[in-house]
């Protein structure tokens, strides 16, 4: 892959995230996500035993995996890789066979009541216009950053150089692009 090719990635700072769910709600209104469904969600993990406790809060969503199994299992090409490696579902091509849901190690997809499969788009429709994704924009704690990982000057690249990070279930082999800063 040439270095000039875009590779969008997101960082989630678990130190600042307060689990307020503004990102979840902003996503819902921006993307008209139907009642009862979400494209992003909050995981709150507390470890230890009273009073020796530690907590981690993560805002999670589709990882826009570099080696996305959801795309490879899709029989119709509805699941596709768009600009910057963003994984999208073209609704009109989707049969609702759900192979991609079974194939996603992160359970990031859901069946839209209209029948097609839906998920986080990294708000590519906004990013293409130079705007931030809705969740990134709303977040009161500045926890979320989206940017081009292949551009060393981008905010995500800088953050990833500066901070220690991890991905969810690296053993899935899907090579996720959402990084949790610890």
């Amino acid at each position: 892959m040439s270095a000039s090719k875009k590779r969008y990635a997101m960082t989630v700072d678990t130190r600042t995230c307060v689990g307020c769910k503004a990102c979840v709600l902003a996503c819902k209104s921006e993307n008209d996500v139907p009642d009862g469904f979400c494209r992003d969600w909050i995981v709150e993990e507390v470890r230890g035993e009273f009073p020796d406790l530690s907590a981690e809060i993560r805002s999670e969503r589709c990882n826009h995996c570099s080696d996305a199994p959801c795309v490879s299992v899709c029989p119709t090409g509805a699941s596709n890789i768009a600009e910057g490696g963003v994984v999208l579902v073209t609704h009109g091509k989707c049969t609702g066979c759900k192979a991609c849901i079974a194939g996603c190690p992160y359970d990031a997809r859901y069946v839209h009541p209209k029948g097609y499969v839906d998920k986080c788009t990294f708000c590519l429709h906004r990013v293409q216009k130079g705007l931030q994704p809705a969740c990134v924009g709303v977040c009161p704690t500045g926890t979320l950053t989206l940017g081009d990982r292949n551009d060393p000057a981008s905010a995500v690249s800088q953050i990833l150089r500066k901070r220690k990070s991890k991905v969810n279930h690296p053993e899935s082999g899907a090579d996720p692009n959402v990084f949790f800063l610890v």
Binding site: E30, N31, D32, T76, G77, A78, N80, A82, E83, L88, T90, H91, G92, K93, T121, L124, H125, Q128
Partner: peptide, 11 residues
């Protein structure tokens, strides 16, 4: 569906 996939805008 042989077209390039458009980025759908939720409008």
């Amino acid at each position: 569906g042989l077209d390039r996939d458009a980025v759908e805008d939720p409008n």
